[in-house]
Nucleic acid binder design. Structure first.
Length: 423
RNA sequence: AGAGAGGUGUCCGAGUGGUUUAAGGAGCACGCUUGGAAAGCGUGUAUACGGCAACGUAUCGGGGGUUCGAAUCCCUUCCUCUCUUCCA
């Protein structure tokens, strides 16, 4: 969430940056400032009247103690008048605050200066590429055929149990998931991240804090009986650990990693892009999250990008890193790098990680602050990234490591899986 | 799921309608004291909003209500503990 004080001081800059994100209503900036002016004015007169009520009430107490009943009754009448004035003020103030809040949450985060202009994924900027394309056998198959052939994943039975997009992993397929999760977590904790295993459902306050509500309401599964949401990413519960918390400056940076299943309704998805494991409603992911000093977040973002890159290199997959353009970025992000691996059999790039700096957008929303050396309270910056999302890594490894006789494994995974080859 | 007891500041803890302007203790910070430390003494020690400031307003788990006045009374909700029940 953007801060009114920032919008007030940087009215034109904010509008310019919102345009990069293709935000449709720049005038909302003015609306918000007007509403905030109105709120201030209302609060000033409310406080003034309330102060009179408070001190008169205290006097009544003193009069009663002295037994001066008559005077007390007279003061009560006067207080009654003030309280009548308070009622409409209170209502108006509550309404203005709701309007202000409703307007504020509509703003996406402002893009970082490095964010390229552009509207669609084609305008993302290639930062670098790495890895080598595999030499596949002549009759190379896509992963949806391979997993059927080797009985690694059963989509049909998953669909029977739940619905489409809920894969059932079997035998070596299931074990491979476990090996990947374990490898990713070990890789992250070795780099200094603390491992968490969070709740897989969150309440509305948590979903709001990280920006899933109200923006992505329809994208989450909602358990209405208890009003809980199934998490779309571990980012939601883990970042919320620090909701309504004032940290010490020395606590920073906080580095967390967590495995979780992720649940996404993916309403409106269709076509070839969603085949097999390319897009599913439930998938596994290991996430990295950091809460850092605002001066450090640019630097930390680069570190996190380098960290994920190292992990991809260890898997021997051809990859590229893209800096997303303003139109392709997420709502809450200030700058995002996407990682894609090349699936040789599908002949297309698959997004496997997205690393973002949210700056103070999430931390302001959830009141995650720290006390600096001077004793001043500041909002921290939050960042997160996938390290990594499993299904497309699964797909890419199965496709890129296929041989005439089976499926090989990257060296790094062999000790985790227990054998040299997957099949 | 049923019954009961609770939720107060960084922590412990007092407080059942009116100098509570949240007692007292601990911790922490600073100062005095000391050769240095400890003890002792003194001062300070939440957040948000408004205000140049003085200061004002709000917050005793959350929300609502009663009252001139609520940490205190009422309703509601969340959470914790104990017992019963159930369960991996």
């Amino acid at each position: 969430m953007l801060q009114v004080s920032f919008l007030r001081q940087n009215r034109d800059l904010a509008k310019k940056k919102l345009a990069i994100k293709h935000f449709a209503q720049p005038d909302l900036v003015d609306t918000v400032i007007d509403l905030d002016d109105e709120r201030k004015q209302l609060q000033a007169s409310f406080d003034e009247t309330q102060a009179k009520v408070n001190s008169a009430s205290k006097e009544i107490g003193a009069m009663m103690a002295k037994g001066d009943k008559e005077k007390a009754e007279a003061t009560k009448t006067a207080v009654g008048e003030w309280k009548k004035q308070l009622e409409p003020l209170k209502e108006k103030m509550a309404q203005v605050e709701i309007d202000l809040q409703n307007a504020l949450v509509q703003f996406p985060n402002l893009p970082h200066d490095l964010v390229p202009l552009g509207k669609s994924p084609e305008e993302n900027v290639l930062v670098r590429e790495g890895g080598v394309l595999p030499k596949l056998p002549a009759d190379a198959e896509a992963h949806w055929d391979l997993i059927k052939k080797y009985n690694l994943v059963d989509f049909e039975t998953g669909a029977k149990i739940t619905g489409s997009g809920f894969p059932l992993y079997i035998g070596k397929g299931a074990k491979f998931q476990r090996a990947l999760v374990q490898y990713f977590l070990d890789f992250n904790t070795a780099a200094g991240y603390t491992e968490y295993l969070p709740p897989f459902m969150v309440n509305a306050a948590s979903a709001f804090a990280t920006g899933q509500l109200p923006d992505k309401e329809g994208q989450m599964y909602h358990a209405t009986e208890d009003d809980f949401y199934l998490i779309p990413t571990a980012e939601v519960p883990v970042t919320n650990i620090f909701r309504d918390v004032v940290l010490k400056e020395t606590d920073l940076p906080l580095q967390m990693t967590a495995y979780s299943p992720c649940f996404r309704r993916e309403a409106g998805s269709f076509g070839k892009e969603v085949r097999g494991l390319n897009r599913v409603h439930q998938f596994e992911k290991v996430e990295i999250i950091q809460i850092v000093h605002p001066d450090k977040s640019d630097e930390v973002l680069n570190e996190m990008v380098a960290h994920v890159e190292k992990l991809l290199v260890s898997l021997g997959l051809p990859y590229r890193i893209l800096r997303l353009c303003g139109g392709d970025m997420g709502f809450a992000s200030a700058i995002t790098y996407d990682f894609e691996v090349y699936s040789a059999a599908q002949e297309r790039w698959l997004e496997v990680s997205s690393v973002s700096n949210f700056e103070s957008y999430q931390t302001y929303r959830m009141k995650c602050r720290f006390k600096d050396a001077a004793g001043k309270i500041q909002f921290a910056h939050s960042l997160n990234g996938s390290s990594l999302a499993l299904p497309r890594i699964f797909a890419a490894i199965v496709e890129n490591y296929q041989t005439e006789v089976g499926i090989a494994l990257p060296k790094a995974l062999q000790p985790y899986f227990g054998t040299e080859n997957l099949i």
